Simulated scan of single mutants.
Amino acid sequence: MPEAKLAEVTTIVPRPADDDFRQVRPIRVEVHDSVAFVAVHGAIQTTTASTLRDILTWAVGNHSGVVVDLSAAETIDRHGLSVLIQAQDVAHAQAVGLCFAEPSKAFRTALRALQADAMFVMFERCSDGFASVRDRTSQPDRRSAIPSARLPFAAAVLL
């Protein structure tokens, strides 16, 4: 985690549709300077997708950069993939830096199974993602710094 003044820490526990809380893990949100860190735990799937969508929409709408820590993310299904794609599209439209960092081996395997492993820019360390987002947002004209290239399935590359 970068050395920056911690402004806010929030832990959100998604409510699953079937009220089975045994498999639900919290999503942690930290704000450092103007960058939101969203730490995802467990599976990104149907039961947690709407909560993660709301969190990422809020983070992108209220911060100059967002780093999504996937080190504790175990797997992803098509609903979770849709959330990440939507977050990239919203960030791109609002000229907000968004990146994904420290994907677990299980998460990378799940992305490959969905044929989506090349859709997202991933950093091996959260600090590298923070530096990339911070450097990009410190440029005078952020919109001109965003590549316009798009990858398959309408996922934008945002770094």
Rank of each mutant, 00 (worst) to 15 (best):
C99G: 02
M122T: 14
L111S: 09
A72H: 13
H32A: 09
G80Q: 01
Q45R: 02
M1S: 13
R143D: 11
A154H: 14
R108N: 15
A154Q: 13
H41G: 05
S148I: 04
A39F: 03
T46C: 02
A7S: 11
R150P: 05
D19W: 00
A106Q: 08
R25H: 12
V121C: 13
H63M: 11
I44M: 03
F123G: 05
T109G: 06
G65T: 14
L159H: 03
A7K: 15
T11P: 01
E102Y: 01
P103R: 12
C99L: 00
I76D: 00
A17M: 01
E3Q: 11
C126L: 07
P16K: 02
P140L: 15
V157C: 10
A49S: 04
A149P: 01
D20K: 01
S148A: 02
S34P: 05
G80S: 07
M119A: 14
R22E: 00
S132M: 10
A93V: 11
I85P: 02
Q86T: 12
D33M: 01
L98N: 04
P152C: 03
A110T: 03
S132C: 08
A36M: 09
G65Y: 11
S50F: 03
C126H: 05
A17H: 03
R125I: 09
I12P: 00
P147K: 00
A156T: 15
R22T: 00
N62V: 14
Q115P: 09
H79F: 06
Q23S: 00
R108E: 14
E102G: 08
E8K: 10
V9L: 07
V9N: 06
R143G: 07
F21C: 00
V121T: 15
I12T: 00
S82M: 07
A131K: 13
V29Q: 05
S71R: 13
D33G: 10
S34V: 10
Q45F: 03
R134D: 09
R150D: 11
A145F: 01
A110G: 05
W58A: 14
L159C: 04
A156P: 09
L70W: 04
A106H: 06
A59H: 11
V96I: 14
R143Q: 08
G61M: 13
R143F: 07
D141W: 14
P140R: 15
D128H: 11
R136P: 02
S71W: 04
Q86M: 08
S138Q: 13
S144C: 07
A131T: 14
S132P: 04
R78A: 06
T137K: 14
R134Y: 10
P147T: 01
G65Q: 09
T46G: 03
Q23C: 01
V68H: 02
I76L: 09
A7V: 14
L56F: 08
A36R: 09
D54K: 10
V66F: 11
H32M: 02
E74P: 10
I55C: 07
V9I: 07
R108K: 15
A73Y: 04
S104G: 12
P2A: 06
S71T: 11
V9K: 12
F153R: 06
S82G: 14
P103S: 08
T75E: 06
E102K: 07
H32T: 04
P147H: 01
K5I: 10
F100C: 02
P140F: 15
G61W: 11
A43K: 12
